[in-house]
Amino acid sequence: MCTVCGCSEGESRIEGDAHHHAEDSAHHTEHHDHTHEHHYGHGPAHAHAPGMSQSRMVQIEQDILGKNNEYANANRLLFTEQGILTLNLVSSPGSGKTTLLTKTLEDLKDEMSLAVIEGDQETSRDAERIRATGTPAIQINTGKGCHLDAHQVGHAVEHLALTPGSVLMIENVGNLVCPAAFDLGEASKVAILSITEGEDKPIKYPDMFHAADILLLNKIDLLPYLDFDIAQCIEYARRINPGIQIFQVSAKTGEGMQAWYQWIRLTQQSRLIGRTAQASTTHSSL
């Protein structure tokens, strides 16, 4: 059971878990008990005069996403300590995200340890598709939510028993708007855009392409049948995000997938180098 969370996302469910309303109301009762202890007369001047306003200003200066960012930082710390490369896969529904993911898992499962967190509004169909590849997967259903948040991911990780040095793929809810704002503690966001969607997606949904480090242009096997202008799409993506790295792939034919795999291998290895250096520093300081 979660001991620190406010559980505002009362509709979300993790497979085999009942992390919702019952706990939610318990938390709220607790909040109320606390606030009742405060007496109305305890204003800045401890004034009790009837009719006198007790209004005062309170400086807050806090990020609205502060709570999510706290959970995200906790996740990131865990991933860093264990040398886990976490990728947050974001796209619109129907970009071929799950197909691309299953293809990647099948091709890489013999050389590295992999795990998947699946986010969808409802059903555990995607997690079942992932588990069919032999990769451990856990499904989060967001219910009314339009994105995964760091708190849900933290709980999902508890269910996964991740191996140190593994690669964790988080397939976010199919949505090009909301998941951009919610840090999950990942190393990188990977945006997937299929060429059946139109080359202007990056400028129509700039927040997401700005937040992503990697863009996978998927379904390029369909290029001969479409009017998709790849050069224009890449130009739009770089307008939004000059540093974005772009791979042109087809999860169906396998074309271009090796470059994507090579990026995963190298990124994961660089994390392990960092981890070894960190471990030896810690050791020598003892």
Partner: peptide
């Protein structure tokens, strides 16, 4: 759509600060 969850985030901060800085409203 996620403005709703952002507002829930705001409410959580208000509740935490109410306890910490002692206000009711």
């Amino acid at each position: 759509m996620h403005e709703m969850s952002l507002c829930e985030g705001v409410l959580q901060v208000l509740q935490t600060e109410a306890k910490r800085q002692g206000f009711n409203k």
